[in-house]
Design a protein around this nucleic acid. Sequence first.
DNA 1: CGCAAGCTTGAATGCCTTCAACCCCAGTGG
DNA 2: CCACTGGGGTTGAAGGCATTCAAGCTTGCG
Lengths: 249, 249
Amino acid sequence: MPEDVALIAPQAACVKCPIRYRAVCAHCEKDELDILEDAKVYRTYSAGQVVAWSGDRMDFVASVVSGVATLTQTMEDGRTQMVGLLLPSDFLGRPGRERVSYTVTATTDLLLCCFRRKPFEQLLARTPRLTQRLLEMTLDELDAAREWLLLLGRKSAREKIASLLAILCRREAALNKDVATGRMTVLLPLTREAMADYLGLTLETVSRQITALKKDGIIDMVGKRQINVPSYQDLVAESGDDADGGPLI
Amino acid sequence: MPEDVALIAPQAACVKCPIRYRAVCAHCEKDELDILEDAKVYRTYSAGQVVAWSGDRMDFVASVVSGVATLTQTMEDGRTQMVGLLLPSDFLGRPGRERVSYTVTATTDLLLCCFRRKPFEQLLARTPRLTQRLLEMTLDELDAAREWLLLLGRKSAREKIASLLAILCRREAALNKDVATGRMTVLLPLTREAMADYLGLTLETVSRQITALKKDGIIDMVGKRQINVPSYQDLVAESGDDADGGPLI
DNA sequence: CGCAAGCTTGAATGCCTTCAACCCCAGTGG
DNA sequence: CCACTGGGGTTGAAGGCATTCAAGCTTGCG
């Protein structure tokens, strides 16, 4: 099998799914879940693999079950900006649109729970609960994008790095139904270059600022990818956000 | 009446509304429209007025009928980033959230078609068409936010200005169910400072780059606010986007 | 008229980028 | 076994683009 084709993985039952209550299917009842169960296919991608190129047809939408994927936009001269960071339970694809607008890349090994687009759209049309959940998730993503606009538009390189690490801490904590605080540790799912594309910086600047945060005791590292945060609050203080940093409810 | 309280304006019938087929109510049937008709109240704000401060309770959601509003985020030290630009037919507010996350400001005289939040949420819950329309609009806004991320993260000051003007040209054309091309003219709904907040620049840089585009014949101006674009294509060429620049469908 | 808000222009500074060299380390094959 | 290789990462020096600070202009309006 060619390396650039996704593997179809054996699939687990929805009721045992680790993202059962956080993904687009969160509020589905038994009968709706049965329909999704029949329509779904698991696919796996390995770190670095491109899931779809901008402009490609994509005949499925999906939930991220495990791993991390990014959405990126590239200008003609090669400048690249990440515009989406998809973590477990996040939704990939836009119902009603058959071509993807952004290049989708697996930055770690990735497991997607895929639904063929047409059947999924039909189910959407007759399952208000599903539409409502997707709306809720899209609104959350819009809020996240707006935080990101502030980061890109107004924050210094140091604040950008601290913000990204704080975001990863919060997502990590949320996975365990917890709240970020005190001592934390994060495994970076991104290369320095991907971090730079997220933050609108160069990879050299990312590297320098990580070194600076390390020197100042805000973080320390085990290898290149594991980051220990002695105090989440101190990290947030470096991010330029106000104390809680959490979204309003 | 104190200046900072919105005026309640006399309201027109929904069937004669200029945004009838583009706003959140676009796909509503007669009976659904009747409910909205009863629940709606028009409010007007004058240019510069704040509609709601970040963190305020807002007991209504609304459609922009005419005029322009912005959503902005401000850091503790005063750095400000615009995170939303609401033009006619755009939706304001988030169902399910009683406090606003961003400061909402009228940058021109503004007419809002307001719905009390609770009744609107109830209608949403039992009117799938309304939810679907709101989902569609939110997805469009997310796409726009992602274009914006590229702009803030990777474009030069000159490209940023050209991009903003091109966006305004496109929105202007869309109002007339048209497509931007050739000679265009835009009335800037934003001060230089608001443009700077949109673009992640200082107002001085905005001013300098507008002067530069003028000098290069990409635009010319009548007063400070009316911008003539001799060639929309030339403007887009300055924006760094590829030729069509339009979103994929 | 005179003021203030919005805007323009100039000069100096600084942050981040660019270009370049080098390090680290895991995987590979002689 | 170990030299080789290449991807990912770090560090240094120089330069550029946008910011900062400052002054002056334009225009609408009380």
